[in-house]
Amino acid sequence: MKSLTRNSIPFGLAILFCLAITGCESNFRDVQKMGFSEFSPSGDADGINLKYTDSGRITANLVSPKMLDYATVQYPFTEFPQGMHLTLYDKNGKETYIDARYAVSHKATNLIDLQDHVKISNQNGEMLETEQLYYDQKNEWFFTEKKFKFTSPKGVSYGEGIDFSKDFKKVNSQKISGEVQSSE
């Protein structure tokens, strides 16, 4: 019986040691997680249709199936994880349409980051398509460094990097990778 007790003690100590190690590892993982900043939205809305006004005049209409508002984080933003459609109105009532499958609006900078099949068009038949586009709300200015396709009544052009006003009256393209193809 003495030999059984002697063999049991090291075996029992080995089991306790293994339990202590796994217990410490679990706590260590919890401590590691404390270093990461996890946050959740302070607001969550489904099926939104927001109208923005200035002096009684509608300046924009935002429609999205889902909106998450992170107003309480250090750098507040609003996320549209299921995409959005935005209609901008100028002072003469002309409309500019913007569609994206994903968007983030940064409150501190007034920039909207539009991503994934971004299309912007107007009533004059002009349309720009790209994978990412930024909109500076304060200056009403769009820009991207990504490849784009620009379609107008004059034809189609392709390029990489462009910035322009919301009415397409001022356009600065960086690289045109091909000639304008007439649509006639």
Rank of each mutant, 00 (worst) to 15 (best):
M1S: 07
M1N: 05
M1D: 05
K2N: 12
T5A: 13
T5C: 06
R6G: 04
N7P: 00
P10C: 01
G12C: 07
G12V: 06
L13P: 06
I15T: 04
F17H: 01
A20P: 02
C24S: 13
E25S: 15
E25F: 15
S26G: 10
F28W: 13
R29E: 14
D30H: 12
Q32Y: 08
G35C: 02
S37V: 10
S37D: 08
S37H: 07
E38T: 09
P41Q: 02
G43V: 00
G43Q: 02
D44W: 13
D46E: 15
G47K: 13
I48T: 08
K51T: 14
Y52A: 12
Y52Q: 14
T53Q: 15
S55Y: 12
G56Y: 07
G56S: 09
R57A: 14
A60D: 09
A60H: 05
L62Q: 03
V63L: 10
L68S: 11
A71V: 00
T72C: 04
V73M: 04
Y75W: 01
P76I: 05
T78S: 02
P81L: 10
G83H: 11
G83P: 10
G83Q: 09
G83D: 12
G83N: 11
L86N: 02
D90C: 12
D90K: 09
K91I: 10
N92G: 09
G93N: 13
G93L: 10
E95K: 15
Y97G: 04
I98A: 07
D99H: 14
D99L: 11
A100N: 03
A100R: 00
K107P: 04
K107S: 06
N110F: 11
N110H: 15
L111Q: 03
L111H: 07
D113A: 02
Q115I: 07
H117L: 14
H117F: 13
V118T: 04
V118P: 05
G125M: 08
E126D: 15
M127V: 10
E129L: 09
E129Y: 10
Q132N: 10
L133V: 03
Y134W: 07
Y134M: 03
D136R: 06
Q137K: 08
K138H: 12
E140Q: 13
F143R: 07
T144E: 01
T144D: 02
E145M: 10
K146W: 07
F150L: 15
T151D: 07
G155S: 05
V156S: 05
V156H: 07
S157Q: 11
G159W: 03
E160K: 14
F164G: 01
S165Q: 03
D167W: 00
D167A: 00
F168C: 06
K169V: 09
N172K: 11
N172P: 03
I176W: 04
G178K: 02
E179T: 13
E184H: 13
E184T: 12
